[in-house]
Design a protein around this nucleic acid. Structure first.
Lengths: 189, 189
DNA sequence: ATGAACTTTCAAAAGATTTTGAAACTGCAA
DNA sequence: TTGCAGTTTCAAAATCTTTTGAAAGTTCAT
């Protein structure tokens, strides 16, 4: 809301921190810890591998927190460890292919949830169908079936979207004023 | 994972609770409190307006929690208050149009976040551009610009999706075996 | 106006999540 | 083998979120 703030002397990393907070919010909004977004952003902006200590310094995080964040980010395949010949310490770099990251996360996380939700709704339907004479059971079963349909539609839609990279992007193909290169890998694969 | 559980005598609401938990998880995954999903689901399955007390009983929630949840669900436009002539207490019913709910939430919540994130990234770019001689500033500015492009693409894509209801749903139009009626309101509006 | 029935509010309690910091661990080099 | 630089782990602390419950507030019938 208030655009004017942080007027303090720029140490050369203010801008990064602002960006890191912003992306941290996005990431938190998608159900991850904010710190994961912040760490990834620092690495992404650095555009070169950074040691854990530097990340901790920039974000004022303890070594433990940095270590845990990096481990988790690697688990999600969005950060890579980089070995530097002759160097003792480890360096880390951010995955830069947004599509790769999104699809990986969807694949692992959304699919798991969707499956568990579907199974549970199916169970609920079965329970209601098993007692057709319970007052209202048929109507309730209808409602749960509708929920289930929706979950299946959403699951399938997301799936198709992830697979085909298509969501009908055409209507705004040139609304954007940047050198963007989102989803820039091979066009059809 | 384990499908066999809750073998206790079904009081007629077991199934609902299972469904409510499942949808609660979905809703939590989308950044809302789980309880909101549970309350909405009870109302959705009931298929008729319910008084707050009944919801509290079924979900074992205090009156306060139910009241707060209902207020918030109404704020999101996914639950409506229903006045019943001659009745003192208030009844509540769930919105049943999934698309309406989704687009409302996107409109209010995602847009807000996207805007704030965009503004912050723009600020970060400006800060880096203001110091072109700072070592690495140009490269970092590039990276932040790329982040920004992505946010703009995502924002625009979501927007278009919500407006047009189109994501290329065709490929799986009949994969579903239910009376589904997702996105059933007027076709173009 | 009063009281019964019901709802809302909000401070405190409970609960959950995140972060810290210190100890344990891991090579590696002397 | 010991010490060092760096990393990981994990229990405790700090912090954040959610729920409760009781008081205040509403509304309506009398």
């Amino acid at each position: 809301m208030s655009e004017r703030e942080t007027p303090k002397l720029d140490d050369g990393h203010e801008a990064e921190l602002i960006a890191a907070e912003a992306i941290g919010d996005v990431i938190e909004h998608w159900g991850f810890r904010r710190v994961l977004g912040r760490v990834w952003t620092i690495l992404f902006i650095a555009a070169e591998p950074l040691p854990a200590a530097v990340i901790g310094e920039r974000l004022s995080l303890s070594a433990g927190a940095v270590s845990m964040s990096l481990t988790e980010l690697q688990r999600w395949g969005v950060v890579r460890r980089v070995f530097r010949p002759g160097e003792r310490k480890e360096y880390f770099e951010a995955e830069t292919d947004f599509w790769k990251m999104i699809s990986k996360v969807f694949d692992e996380r959304e699919r798991l949830l969707a499956e568990s939700v579907r199974a549970r709704l199916e169970r609920a339907v079965a329970m209601l169908e098993a007692r057709p004479r319970l007052p209202g059971a048929e109507q309730r079963a209808d409602r749960v079936r509708r929920l289930l349909s929706f979950v299946i539609v959403a699951e399938t839609a997301l799936d198709g979207f992830i697979r085909s990279r298509r969501v009908d992007f055409s209507p705004f193909g040139d609304l954007i004023r940047f050198p963007l290169r989102v989803a820039s890998r091979k066009r059809r694969a």
